[in-house]
Write a protein that binds this DNA or RNA. Structure first.
Length: 721
RNA sequence: AGCGGGAUGGGAUAGCCAGGAGAUUCCGGCGGGCUCAUAACCCGCAGACCGGUGGUUCAAAUCCACCUCCCGCUACCA
């Protein structure tokens, strides 16, 4: 069994999302090449609060909203050669029934208990408000926060009731808290089991190690119900639905079951037949391929559930790294993304991206996408190495021998192919799709060297027998490369296979076919890969930049938000308060914002290399005059405890003493601040940071927050022009 | 803060689990060759004290300890 983490039916897919699925698909195909009986399944995750909230905001039913995305995903995956044996969704009857069965079993076995907890409630609507239905102010830092997490400020997890000024996202009504009965999964009872499990688990090292903190620490019981209409009802409890992370992984099983049932109902002579119960409860081996953001769910909650119902445990979890765009995170809200539809509309073959993302770096490592690197890898590895070797070999063979010349494969080449097959198998055993994907390319690299070393174009006249043997070797290498590339580049492999004159799909043959004799005759080949020219790359980069700019302008018009985010910490301190993005995107591996400010400022600061470009637009004196700059003198300075950077300042600006919060704690010796003269923006909008009101903004330069000051004796309160 | 992942020639990456001849491959640079092939391909050269400091060992990129810097995770978001 190979499964891919369920995509959440809540937004469009960008190429970064695809990494997990391409990885899973490649791995499943590689297993088949080695003769394994594989079922490869996934499905869309339809339930949960974000779908409910976003559907509500769009004014459609959650069902319609989720289904729309599900259908898009279902259509998209095959377009990228990701061919699930079954792709369902969590709302299908098979999953609903199986989920209830799981829960009933867990209940019968005593793994579930009731407990009363506090939940937010909309008194006017008489509705419970789970998770993201609530927004308010973070009690720790004062930033805008969602019900359970201070997502834009300090990032803290918030317990129910902690959030201040809580209101309903849907109605805007103030929320209150009520005591409700919920169901808890006794995860703590699985501590010992999971301790053993994590030592047995195979896969990528991040997946095997990250959950240790939890498992070897204290496991908390898990609340598995929500007050929500949208989801699978808890058996026998009308008011509660199951938490999505209960029914989502069960879709792996339900999807397998659907596949098995479809296989059974197909004509009986077909070899298609799959025993789902054997796979999940007997001697099947489970391999989960997921994004690295959902490791815990697959190494803690899910194995405990499986164990609780007596199913097999996962043998391996492969957790993929993220894909960045030009070194920074994809950002759906800023349209900083290469969407899958864009990619396809550009007419790029999906196998190009598959090869890029699979062989670029280790699966668990983060990687970077840019059109420049994409073109470089396509032109170098696919056009220059693989495509060129296959084309020149087959063309030469076709012209001179009308196909495969009548000669034996040399020992050297046979051994080289055997090594490649071994490396392929070793890659699978190491859970390294990268190693698997490289084998075909490496073989072509060898082939280019081999053909050059023997110069068959000279031998055809001087030593025809020898020429025939060399070309026979080359055709064999071409065939082997086609077979070994099939998991990474299924479409291209198929084309090459048929150009070799082979009948039937390359996907039906195993790795050993790499050593079988190619057909005696075949037609002239076509060039398998097309070069991406520099002009094309430039155009693609321009498009991307323009889109980002447009989105930034749109955002700025709307609420003057995004740009402030990227500024230095000092400015950000004052800007944060009005930065409320309508964050409709909660797509899974969207590791938005977070790191990108750091990445950028770090570069800006490096020996003054990369300055921010000067602003294009000129402003008038009047516009400048709107900023009321004043000389101030710091009277008192105290660090704000719970913050890494913020300092609480009392600044004398002549007419009054202002309380100002500035993000300069790490950069200055706070005790030395009093007495310093600074320049502040006196008419800055007030902001609340970590619960402290900031009435003004201190000016400072760069990442080091070099404070602006005066050099004469201008007294506090003096206007700065 | 704790935990996980990472730091390797100008850029990008492999090797680390199972320690061993002054380290892989690609891009880029320089020089040469070839002309079957999509200005592609082949050969050669220059370029890395393998993040830092200690330790174990006959031997450390690899194992151990501490440190620095990046990225991420931290359960009633998905």
């Amino acid at each position: 069994m190979v499964t891919c983490g369920l995509p959440y039916a809540n937004g469009d897919l960008h190429v970064g999302h695809l990494r997990t699925y391409v990885g899973g698909d490649t791995f499943a195909r590689a297993l088949r090449k080695l003769g394994q009986d594989v079922a490869f399944v996934s499905g869309s995750d339809m339930h949960g609060t974000p779908v409910a909230v976003n559907a509500w905001q769009e004014g459609v039913s959650p069902e319609e909203f989720a289904l729309r995305h599900h259908e898009a995903y279902e259509r998209t995956f095959p377009e990228f050669g990701i061919e699930f044996d079954n792709y369902g969704h969590t709302r299908e009857p098979s999953n609903v029934l199986l989920t209830r069965e799981f829960v009933r079993t867990l209940d019968d076995e005593g793994h579930i208990y009731d407990e009363e907890i506090e939940v937010a409630w909309d008194p006017e609507e008489g509705q419970p408000l789970p998770d993201r239905y609530v927004e308010g102010t973070c009690p720790y830092c004062g930033a805008q926060a969602r019900g359970d997490e201070c997502d834009e400020g300090c990032g803290r997890h918030l317990e129910p009731g902690e959030i201040e000024n809580a209101t309903s996202v849907a109605t805007g009504n103030p929320a209150e808290y009520r005591t409700r009965n919920h169901k808890f999964f006794r995860l703590s009872a699985f501590q010992e089991y999971l301790t053993g499990f994590i030592d047995r688990l195979e896969g990528t090292s991040n997946a095997r190690n990250q959950p240790r903190e939890w498992i070897e620490g204290e496991l908390e019981d898990w609340c598995i119900t929500r007050d929500l209409d949208w989801g699978i009802d808890y058996p026998g409890e009308e008011e509660l639905v199951l938490y999505v992370w209960v029914d989502a992984p069960i879709e792996y099983v339900a999807s397998t079951k659907e596949y098995a049932e479809r296989a059974d109902s197909a004509d009986s002579e077909s070899s298609l037949s799959f025993d789902w119960e054997r796979a999940w409860t007997e001697d099947g081996e489970l391999i989960h391929v997921v994004g690295r953001d959902i490791i815990q769910h697959h190494t803690v909650f899910w194995p405990a559930m499986l164990h609780g119902v007596g199913y097999n445990e996962p043998r391996a979890v492969l957790a993929s790294g993220f894909v960045n765009l030009d070194g920074r995170a994809f950002s759906t809200s800023r349209n900083r993304a290469v969407w899958v539809d864009d990619y396809l509309r550009e007419g790029f073959d999906p196998d190009l991206y598959r090869h890029y993302v699979i062989t670029g770096t280790g699966f668990q490592q983060d990687t970077d996408f840019s059109w420049d690197r994409f073109a470089e890898r396509v032109n170098g590895e696919l056009v220059g190495t693989l495509g060129n070797f296959l084309y020149r070999s087959l063309l030469f063979a076709h012209r001179n021998y009308d196909g495969t010349p009548d000669a034996e494969v040399s020992t050297e080449v046979r051994e080289r192919i055997e090594d490649a097959i071994e490396a392929f198998a070793a890659g699978v055993n190491d859970y390294s799709v990268r190693a698997v994907g490289r084998t075909g390319i490496e073989l072509a690299r060898f082939g280019n060297e081999y053909i050059q070393r023997h110069e068959p174009w000279k031998l055809v006249d001087s030593d025809p027998d020898r020429a025939a043997q060399v070309i026979r070797d080359c055709v064999q290498l071409a065939k082997a490369a086609s077979v070994l590339c099939a998991p990474t580049m299924p479409g291209k492999a198929e084309v090459l296979w048929s150009q070799l004159g082979e009948s039937g799909p390359v996907h039906d043959v195993g790795v050993d076919a790499a050593l079988d004799a190619p057909p005696a005759t075949f037609d002239a080949p076509t060039e398998p890969f097309e070069r991406i020219e520099d002009e094309r790359v430039a155009a693609l980069n321009d498009d991307l930049e323009r889109r980002i700019d447009e989105a930034a302008t749109r955002n700025a018009d709307g609420e003057e938000a995004t740009a402030a985010n990227d500024d230095s910490e000092v400015a950000a301190a004052a800007a944060d308060a009005d930065d409320e993005r309508t964050d409709a995107d909660a797509s899974d591996s969207d590791n938005d914002d977070g790191g990108d400010t750091d990445g950028e400022t770090a570069v800006d600061d490096a020996e003054g290399v990369d300055f921010e470009p000067l602003a294009d637009e000129r402003i008038g004196f009047e516009a400048f005059g709107e900023v009321d700059l004043r000389v101030g003198r710091i009277e008192a300075a105290e660090p704000i405890e719970s913050s890494d950077e913020l300092v609480h300042l009392e600044v004398d600006i002549g007419v009054e003493v202002r309380q100002v919060v500035a993000g300069i704690k790490q950069l200055h010796d706070v005790e030395s601040l009093p007495g310093r003269k600074v320049v502040i923006v006196a008419n800055m909008e007030k902001a609340e940071l970590f619960g402290v009101e900031s009435n003004g903004m201190v000016l400072a330069a760069g990442e080091a927050a070099d404070l602006l000051t005066t050099h004469g004796d201008a007294p506090p309160g003096t206007k700065v022009r």
